[in-house]
């Protein structure tokens, strides 16, 4: 391996630009980003998820997420044979069905399943970056908002830490940061996507189960995907305008 060649390569324009963008401290240094040109979301392809927890760990590394709190996490669902024979029978259904586990958010993977009956699958969860987000609606001071590019963000210098938004989120995606004492949540790696990178979870996902999508970009493969697949959002009855789209979502997921 020729290290000198590598050192030279790093000065090549492509790599250099990538570097500058990564290291850029301010958005002015990423001048090619126009907020109104984007409408960000995420595609989660459930049949591809293997529950490795790479996304959870990557997110924690990238965003300094405190232990025990999650900007993204993975749940493992176990729908029993009984449940499949009696779908949506809420009155007689045993309370433990479907059985959902998420040990430490799935950060270190999942225990080996003992009961082979029924069906198992993984569901990665994160902030849905809702267009009509109930969390930004209730913020008393305007410390959380839907940015012009569709990302739901928290202004941590302005947040009171009242936790009203945590209560208002139907998906459990927010928490109060134990040290900063303000609301914290997924930023869709805003510091990355504004510089042309993908999110940390997408970068780290080994199977492509997560894909950052830009619904305003006509060249984004999401448009073709949506034409050919049945895609669902979580809790559609909440009418939150969720922009995390799930392919192959089971009806038992909540």
């Amino acid at each position: 391996m020729n290290l000198n060649r590598r050192q030279m390569l790093i000065l090549l324009p492509a790599a250099a630009i990538a570097w500058k963008a990564v290291l850029a401290g301010t958005p002015e240094e990423a001048p090619n980003y126009t907020m109104s040109d984007h409408w960000w979301g995420m595609l989660i392809d459930i049949p591809k998820c293997i529950g490795c927890g790479n996304c959870v760990r990557a997110c924690q590394t990238e965003n300094n997420v405190p232990d025990g709190y999650f900007r993204t996490w993975v749940e493992r669902y176990h729908v029993s044979d009984w449940e499949m024979k009696n779908p949506q029978d809420i009155m007689t259904n045993p309370l433990t069905d479907p059985q959902v586990i998420s040990p430490d958010g799935g950060k270190e993977g999942f225990p080996v399943d003992t009961d082979a009956s029924g069906k198992y699958f993984f569901v990665p969860k994160m902030c849905n970056h809702c267009a009509d987000s109930p969390c930004t609606q209730v913020c008393p001071v305007g410390a959380t908002f839907v940015a012009p590019d569709g990302v739901v963000l928290v202004d941590q210098k302005y947040c009171l830490g009242c936790a009203y938004c945590v209560q208002a989120c139907p998906y459990g995606c927010r928490y109060i940061h134990p040290e900063k004492r303000v609301a914290d949540k997924c930023t869709l790696c805003y510091h990355r996507i504004t510089k042309g990178l993908t999110t940390a979870c997408c970068e780290a996902c080994p199977t492509g189960a997560r894909q950052l999508v830009d619904l305003k970009n006509p060249k984004d493969p999401i448009h073709e995907f949506l034409k050919t697949h049945s895609v669902q959002v979580l809790k559609p009855q909440m009418a939150t305008g969720a922009k995390v789209l799930y392919n192959g979502l089971d009806g038992s997921v909540r």
Binding site: A30, E62, L153, K157, T187, Y190, H191, K195
Partner: peptide
């Protein structure tokens, strides 16, 4: 706040 959030250093 948008600029401040975008200024977070990337690790990946």
């Amino acid at each position: 706040a948008l600029g401040e959030i975008a200024a977070h250093p990337a690790k990946f």
